[in-house]
Simulated scan of single mutants.
Amino acid sequence: MTSSGPTPNCGVRTSVTDPRIPTVDLRLWLSGDPAARAGIAESVDRALRSAGFLLVTGHGVDPGLRGEIRDAARDFFRLPERQKEPYAVKVGGRGWLGPGAEANAYAEGIETPPDLKESLSFAAEDPTGDPAVDAEWFLPNTWPAEAPHLRDLVEAYLARMRTLCDQLLELLGVALGEPEDFFTRHTTHPTWGFNINWYPGRDRVGDPRPGQFRIGPHTDFGTVTVLDRQEGKGGLQVFTDPEDGGAGWEDAPYDPEAFTINIGDLMARWTGDRWRSGRHRVLPPPADVPAEELISLVYFYECDPGTAVRGIDSHTYLRAQLDAITAD
């Protein structure tokens, strides 16, 4: 494509729901057009300074693959609990996180009932050769025999996520005014996590307790999160600070073609708090749609073990935060 000059919103459109959260067409970022890249980088910087969220289209990830993952995971989640129990793990493990396992608001010091969700959790497993690091961060994943097609589907998806996240981190490096490899030089052998989150309806979990959410208010802990979500009444909300002109809690903008991207605490720290870790929550299952069931695919991308982020060890911090959200 050609351009007659810099255009601040070239390759970017703002959401009618929340103009603080733009939609970025990644194809225009990857095209190499200087004007488009400059406009995208400026819009990304502006968004991450306020809400900490973006929508990204043009990512090239097949929607059919995402649908097949949901179908395979749903079959597992709907099994009787006794069939899922052999795969049960604690937060940070590889396997099934059952009802009551997490309370994400604990990370903010808020005492809430456990989150109303179940998850299948996977994480990095290719060993580094360092026994201590591998024993904590690079263990084999567990694949339920009751979902025989899930592994191939998820592994195909994870390969796309790794590529996408490095592309996003290159964009973020430029948006920060740094070289394109400012972040990716620290992702040669990164840790990552992938959760398939199942949010059953009230017809399965009953009425929420006071202060109970599908996921309580929190910020993510790492660098970049890539969320593929479904629209629903009991869906994602984001928080923008009213003191800075924000709206408080409001429904996140939704585009079925887009991934929802947010940055986490480590990324905010990495930028000297220029950027804001995106605070969010997932609403309780709605009373007026008691059978509403949603499944989200959530990929958490981190950095290489041992990476120091402005004086703190990145993975010591990550482990402490995972421990913090473990429900009692």
Score class of each variant (00 low, 15 high):
Val174Ser: 08
Val174Asp: 10
Ala175Asn: 15
Leu176Gln: 00
Leu176Ile: 09
Gly177Phe: 06
Gly177Lys: 02
Gly177Trp: 12
Glu178Leu: 13
Pro179Trp: 11
Glu180Ser: 10
Glu180Thr: 15
Asp181Arg: 06
Phe182Gln: 15
Phe183Asp: 01
Thr184Lys: 13
Arg185Ile: 09
His186Val: 02
Thr188Ala: 13
His189Ser: 12
Pro190Tyr: 01
Pro190Ser: 05
Trp192Tyr: 12
Gly193Trp: 12
Phe194Asp: 11
Phe194His: 15
Asn195Pro: 03
Asn195Asp: 13
Ile196Gln: 14
Asn197Cys: 13
Trp198Thr: 07
Tyr199Ser: 01
Tyr199Leu: 00
Pro200Tyr: 13
Gly201Val: 07
Arg202Pro: 10
Arg202Val: 10
Arg204Lys: 10
Arg204Ile: 00
Arg204Ser: 02
Gly206Trp: 04
Gly206Phe: 05
Asp207Ile: 05
Asp207Trp: 05
Arg209Ile: 10
Pro210Met: 00
Gly211Gln: 06
Gly211Ser: 01
Gln212Glu: 01
Gln212Ala: 06
Phe213Leu: 04
Phe213Val: 04
Arg214Ala: 02
Ile215Lys: 04
Ile215Arg: 02
Gly216Arg: 03
Gly216Gln: 00
Gly216Asn: 07
Pro217Val: 06
Pro217Leu: 10
Pro217Met: 10
His218Trp: 05
His218Val: 11
Thr219Trp: 01
Asp220Glu: 09
Phe221Gly: 07
Gly222Phe: 01
Gly222Val: 08
Gly222Glu: 12
Leu227Ala: 09
Asp228Phe: 03
Asp228Ile: 00
Arg229Pro: 07
Arg229Asn: 11
Gln230Tyr: 00
Gln230Trp: 00
Glu231Val: 02
Glu231His: 02
Gly232Arg: 07
Gly234Arg: 13
Gly235Met: 12
Gly235Pro: 08
Leu236Pro: 04
Gln237Leu: 02
Gln237Ser: 02
Val238Arg: 01
Val238Pro: 11
Thr240Arg: 03
Pro242Gln: 10
Glu243Phe: 01
Glu243Cys: 02
Gly245Ser: 07
Gly246Ile: 05
Gly246Phe: 03
Gly246His: 01
Ala247Leu: 14
Gly248Ser: 12
Gly248Ala: 13
Glu250Asn: 14
Glu250Arg: 15
Asp251Pro: 10
Asp251Arg: 14
Asp251Trp: 06
Ala252Cys: 12
